[in-house]
Design a protein around this nucleic acid. Sequence first.
DNA 1: GGCCAGGCTAGCA
DNA 2: TGCTAGCATGGC
Length: 310
Amino acid sequence: MFQQTIVIKPPYSFQRLLHRLEFHPDPQLRIERESNTLHRAFRVGGQPVLVSLRFDGSVEEPLLHINTHAALTPARQAELLKLIRHSFSTDVDLAPLYGHMAENERLRLLAERFRGLRFLLDSDLFGSMVRTILGQQVNLAFAAALTDRLLTLAGDVLEDEQGNRYLAFPTAEAVARLEIPQLRELQFSQRKAEYIIDFARAVVDGKVDLERLQSMTDDEVIACLTPLRGIGRWSVECLLMFGMGRPDLLPAADIGLRNGIQLVYGIDEKLSEAQIRSIGEAWAPYRSYVSLYIWEAVGAMRRGEWQTDI
DNA sequence: GGCCAGGCTAGCA
DNA sequence: TGCTAGCATGGC
């Protein structure tokens, strides 16, 4: 058993995270609303560990209580804490972002409306890349269904004392052992099946060194991964944002972001990728977070939770 | 039934 | 270099 409390850099809005999770389901998370707690399995030292995360305090004084039933060595404890800090973006300083967004009326309203919203990052790069590939072109609900099926097929299953089941994301080795027909049965397209198995085998073979990506610039990571079949620029940009937490990415090919920019900026005509990048230049060096807030805005507008007349 | 989803590849000019 | 058909499926 291991317990620890993390002081999160304010502001942090757990309610915004929960709200986002309603529309961006994560098959790995179990949400316990009444106690502000998330449960999920993290892979620590290669082994899946069940972790409870209880959010406490307030948006301006946020705390996170971590609890595991399994005993962990000090090294594993440190590894888990690092994973959690990364996943929940607990150390990101939003003040410079908000200062930047305050200079533009449209962005200022976004920052105000979604104050405390942060990225929930993937806890491993392999899983992040696979989820991104599964998310190509299809809607988010179907992408989540495919992820769930892959987890059930190849992931590690943990169970708590209440009988709740948790799935740890499969390792590259486990996905590399899969064959295409197994995934086709689960409604994966031929291409998605090929792409993720090929990627897993490249990781296992050492043709792709995920650890080495950490020391590369964004452009170097893009240049390194886009030669792989099934991985285009959008996918690497998503890996950099949602897997590595890099702050200044703009996935201009993203249909949701494109729609969001049109809504937020009140533009009627369809924007080209070049136009999106041009608009986004003003958001540097915080393009990832502005993108997140725009994604959130387009969802809120579509659901009728928010409207703005700017 | 048509169109759209947090795209990518291969083929072609 | 730039454009486009085809891919597979679910939801509205």
